[in-house]
Design a binder for these strands. Structure first.
Lengths: 329, 329
DNA sequence: CTGTTAGCGCCTTCAC
DNA sequence: GTGAAGGCGCTAACAG
């Protein structure tokens, strides 16, 4: 691996000259530049990114930290992040937090291998976020609140979304509505649940804890939760799944038992992932502005990096997407 | 930002001792370790990842380079890569190649910010790949052939997949079969097309160039290609879309014109992305073993890194997935 | 077990 | 316009 020294030697100049030439700094004669470039070419020289980052103390890249790089939900978010990152001349790396404290994600956070980060990954602890954020290393969290001057919190209005979902069913005449929940430690889930409960209260239906099941935000979890609901014999009028993936799992469970949606039971989801409009019946759901969330997050990072004052909290509106999985009772 | 020097000073030891203590190297007394850790804690010390990578000349991370981090196709691939990467104690970063030569991806490749890379991104030039790969920086390419001792080529048997798709329609009595192609410079696309042509030949139907359209592997492209096909009035018996996304676009075009699939025209896709089984009608397609491709790719990288001899080329089998978008003529 | 020291590869002030 | 030299933060011989 050729270094800048080799290049300098081969070109017969000093390293500094080589450096200037290589970085296009207007300080060397074009003849010298020529020589250096030629030498670099011949040696197949590639600069070592670490060394230069180390020196510059800046990486020009921001990290997007997700609990799962795969998964349909993140696609649009990533696009939003990516678009504005590259248009600002920064690089974007996405990394997964699987592995928790010893994941790539944690390392990026702790060892500051990037200039800023966006996190949407419940298995990253708030502690590391707090310990990592600094003036020159702002973090935007999408899935929790963190009390620190250098972390900003942007979230979708989960409460309202949950409220909308439940009240829609209520308005349609449903009285008993089950809630299939995400992970209990999820802030998003919590808010959706609160909205749901408030809607029940406002419509004078009393909340029954037997109708709260846990589905962990996964398709499999939704499937299992639905199975247990079915096994209990006494089905509610409708089910509010705290995300679409779980609703899809539920749909499958119903199909297997020949229970028709929405004729026999209504369901509603949350997120509006792409597939939701394709399933049978098309899923009524609450759309999250995923692209917007992503682009907002990066914008905030750039503002922080530029030293501008920004709000600490942002709330994005949800949309109600009416399709065909809820019937008129 | 505290450095290891500060920690050492505060703990009253030499930097090397601090380094040993911090890295858990069994060389210092537990009392000293204690002291150092405490000092680090108090100074909120975080090690600088660059500096240590620079020194070690090793990053323990591998990069996955994709043309588009979003997009349904990549989900499973990523999972495969991720699973084996983390189980080997390495980190994984995904980066996008949007921006081409000046993308994050190119920088990772050229400046060797990682120990190995997997690329599936047609906008990264083969030149860059060739120039970057070295003994201690193996690259696995999933979408082309590269002639270099340090790059390995793993691909799905696109030829056979294309052949299977076309001959299936042929067997079902279809005579005229259009081909909606991906980007012309795509190796995968080329192979699929060759398979398709061979099938035509084997079934004694002559290839007609008017039935080759370009759809660019995008939903939008498939939609437009299908529109032009419809506009030509004379529809073929069936269409082979070189990927599922385009087939989905085609499906939409047909729906808009009230042309029924498969009654009026048969279609078949390639990839078997998740959504394909949910659309109406469920899409007959060729499945690519995406998870396997991903995990194979990383395995190969680790083998190369370990200095083992490996084959230069791997071919993964496709599966034929029969659903309901092709009729019996 | 602990401290001293020499770089890793690059950038950048400072003289010339 | 060019070269010498110092140092970014860390690790790993090597001595003691």
């Amino acid at each position: 691996m050729a270094t800048i020294k080799d290049v300098a030697k081969k070109a017969g100049v000093a390293v500094s000259t080589a450096s200037y030439a290589l970085n296009g700094i207007n300080k060397v004669s074009s003849a010298t530049v020529e020589k250096v470039l030629k030498a670099a070419q011949e040696l197949n020289y590639q600069k070592n990114g670490f060394a230069s980052d180390l020196k510059r103390a800046k990486t020009n890249t921001i990290a997007l930290i997700l609990s799962d790089l795969s998964g349909p939900y993140f696609s649009e978010l990533i696009k939003g992040v990516q678009d504005v990152t590259v248009s600002n001349g920064f690089d974007l790396v996405a990394c997964s937090s699987v592995g928790g404290p010893k994941s790539t994600a944690t390392k990026f956070l702790k060892e500051k291998r990037v200039d800023g980060a966006i996190v949407l990954a419940n298995n990253i602890t708030t502690d590391v976020i707090k310990a990592s954020a600094r003036k020159d290393f702002p973090i935007v969290v999408l899935d929790r609140k963190v009390d620190s001057p250098y972390v900003i919190h942007a979230e979708v209005n989960n409460y309202k979304g949950g409220y909308d979902a439940a009240s829609y069913m209520l308005e349609k005449g449903h009285r008993s509505i089950a809630y299939v929940s995400g992970p209990l430690d999820s802030h998003d889930n919590e808010e959706r649940f609160k909205g749901y409960r408030q809607a029940l209260t406002d419509f004078d239906v009393t909340y029954q804890s037997r109708w709260k099941l846990t589905g962990n935000f996964t398709r499999e979890g939704g499937y299992r939760a639905t199975k247990t609901l079915i096994a209990q014999q006494n089905l509610p009028d409708g089910i509010f799944y705290a995300n679409d993936e779980m609703a899809l799992g539920g749909l499958q469970a119903f199909q297997e038992k020949n229970i028709r949606v929405p004729e026999d039971i209504s369901i509603i989801g949350f997120d509006d992932i792409q597939i939701s409009s394709y399933v049978q019946p098309p899923l009524t759901t609450i759309r999250q502005p995923k692209y917007e969330a992503g682009s907002l997050a990066v914008h905030l990072i750039f503002q922080m990096l530029a030293g501008e004052e920004v709000e600490k909290t942002y709330k994005l509106a949800t949309d109600f997407i009416e399709r065909q999985s809820v019937k008129n009772k």
